[in-house]
Design a protein around this nucleic acid. Structure first.
Length: 426
DNA sequence: TCTGGGGTCCTAGGACCC
DNA sequence: TCTGGGGTCCTAGGACCC
């Protein structure tokens, strides 16, 4: 059996751990740039605050009910996430925990006898909550997709399930599938849901009855086929190796306000490249392809949502590298190619791909070998930036004024990752 | 006035190779 | 009087996830 453990209203819960007076009060967390709402506590959901809705639209409601508002604080969430995952790795063995996202992970329960599943799940839940202060929900079932179904129902009926639901018999699975609408299945998005509804397939149960060839034709080939296998209880998505490296590393941001000068865009791109190469070094990788894109601010007021077209280009380097300044140079050159005088931009991004492991770096006969001193400099900068504040050390290309920086008007302190911000007691 | 950021996997089609 | 078949790699684009 497989479990999925998922933190309840994760970002809100993180904020509340350090502000216990907000327990049982409505709380929301905003996306970067304070643009839209990306997490809501149960109390905020009940008030009718919508997920992913723009903040300015929900503002009247938020003010009326005195909802607490936070800008996103990814240092805090990343650290709290690590604590949750580390707790589970300690309890179940790290080879049995697959981190799926910042607030979710799959847990392999193959070795747990069926009659103990419920007890084990409850122990996991209680231990995580006690050690980290973060509330979680757990769904257990024979496959990943079914465990997602279980998890969703566990959360939906908190009063009955206490946030733990085990689907350990064909009858329980069938009932759960009947209670799950087609668009609530993991892997069915808006497009497919609409298509399926037109064919009169309305619940997960209906879909589980379709045959595999039908899925192959109508549900995106092997992806759909696997999904239906999973719904039928046949394992088709296995536990994945936690050590695999990311294939793409991206750092992209909206600007705090539209930008019209190339210098600011170059500074932003240099800064994003710095961030991205830090992520790259963290997984001991090196990248051979660097792409840069910019998004012009649309002139048409009717196009209000979803980023307009982005304009991008990429450079393939002679050899893979993880050294920041070797990546900044081509990145900034790409900006020269993309930027158009007189245009106004609202977003830019950097993506690293063609990633190989640092250990297996392919040399290229025509470029000199990497200098060790560069490597040491990089790792020193990473250490200093990590242990002190963000960005204490940076490259001159990143600029010092940064009027493109995003807005964050409701920031909470970095309680767990910055010495100056640690809570004092008594 | 004002709508995020960072990923994954898959398919199709073209280029190229033997 | 007639032009294969199979494989790999790359890119663009679609769909989905949290």
């Amino acid at each position: 059996m497989i479990a999925i453990l998922d933190c309840n209203s994760f970002y809100c819960s993180c904020e509340r751990v350090f502000r216990p007076e907000l327990d049982n009060k409505p709380v929301v967390v905003l996306s970067n740039n304070d643009g839209c709402i990306i997490a809501r506590s149960d109390e905020a959901k009940k008030l009718g605050v919508e997920m992913a809705g723009p903040y300015f639209k929900a503002k009247p409601l938020i003010e009326e009910y005195g909802v607490s508002v936070f800008s996103s604080n990814y240092n805090l969430y990343g650290d709290m996430s690590w604590r949750v995952m580390e707790t589970l790795r300690m309890l179940m063995g790290k080879e049995n925990v697959e981190v799926y996202s910042v607030d979710e992970c799959f847990i392999n329960l193959e070795k747990v006898p069926n009659e103990q599943l419920q007890r084990v799940a409850i122990t996991l839940k209680e231990t995580v909550e006690m050690w980290t202060g973060i509330k979680v929900s757990i769904g257990v079932a024979p496959t990943k997709v079914l465990s997602k179904v279980a998890n969703r129902l566990a959360k939906k009926n908190k009063a009955v399930t206490n946030c733990v639901l085990v689907l350990d018999s064909p009858r329980k699975i069938e009932q759960a599938l009947q209670k799950t609408a087609i668009e609530d299945i993991w892997g069915i998005g808006g497009q497919y849901a609409e298509k399926l509804r037109l064919s009169n397939i309305n619940t997960a149960y209906d879909l589980s009855k379709k045959d595999l060839n039908w899925a192959k034709k109508n549900l995106g080939g092997v992806v759909g086929e696997r999904l239906i296998r999973e719904l039928k209880g046949e394992k088709s998505r296995i536990m994945e190796d936690p050590l695999t490296q990311k294939k793409i590393i991206a750092t992209t941001r909206m600007f705090g306000s539209p930008v019209t000068d190339i210098k600011s865009i170059k500074e932003a791109v240099a800064t994003y490249t710095t961030r991205a190469s830090e992520k790259l070094r963290r997984q001991h990788g090196a990248a051979r392809i660097i792409s840069v894109f910019v998004v012009p601010k649309e002139q048409n007021f009717n196009v209000r949502f979803r980023h307009g077209p982005s304009i991008g280009s990429y450079t393939t380097l002679q050899r893979a590298t993880s050294i920041t300044n070797e990546l900044i140079k081509p990145a900034v050159e790409l900006v020269d190619k993309l930027f158009e005088e007189g245009k106004s931009y609202k977003k830019a991004g950097v993506m690293l791909s063609g990633i190989v492991s640092d250990a297996s770096l392919q040399g290229n006969l025509f470029v000199p070998a990497i200098k060790n001193s560069q490597r040491m400099l990089m790792s020193m900068m990473d250490n200093i930036n990590c242990s002190m504040r963000d960005d204490i050390l940076k490259f001159a290309a990143s600029g010092t004024t940064r009027n493109w920086k995003m807005q964050k008007n409701f920031n909470s302190p970095c309680y767990t990752t910055r010495w100056d911000d640690i809570k004092s007691v008594g």
